[in-house]
């Protein structure tokens, strides 16, 4: 099962990276979202897969009755999901504001910090 998931995750990564290599900021954003999903699933799968048994201890017991899903990657991924969303929102607003300020959604056209054809640094002392 893990192998099957690995292939699926690889596909997620490939699509995410492909979109991130776009010049258009919207596609980059979508790519980042997919990449986030891929990373979360990667952590989840690396902790091994168990079907349908959530890591919850039954009411009358003090330890889980049998093998359960691995709780540790779940805890890691849960917070990661929320944080990746808040970063996604930040990037979205950043992209929106950039578009408003620069009038373009093409990252190669955004050259305020690194203008085209900059002069060589000055020689001498």
């Amino acid at each position: 099962m893990e192998a099957g998931f690995s292939v699926l995750i690889g596909l997620f990564f490939a699509v995410g990276v492909y979109l991130m290599l776009s010049r258009h900021i919207v596609h980059i954003l979508i790519g980042i979202t997919i990449l986030g999903n891929a990373v979360n699933m990667l952590i989840f799968t690396a902790g091994r897969l168990t079907r349908e048994v959530p890591p919850v201890i039954p009411l009358e017991l003090y330890v889980p009755a049998g093998p359960t899903a691995n709780p540790l990657p779940q805890a890691l991924v849960l917070t990661a999901i929320v944080i990746s969303f808040s970063f996604f929102a930040f990037l979205l607003v950043l992209a929106f504001r950039t578009y408003q300020e620069l009038g373009t959604d093409d990252v190669n056209e955004m050259r305020v910090a690194e203008p085209k054809g900059e002069a060589l640094p000055p020689q001498g002392y």
Binding site: V82, F85, S86, A89, V93
Partner: peptide, 13 residues
């Protein structure tokens, strides 16, 4: 924190 921050982002947008 989550209600406030995420809600704030949603409302701002």
């Amino acid at each position: 924190v989550v209600v406030g921050a995420i809600g704030s982002i949603a409302l701002a947008l």
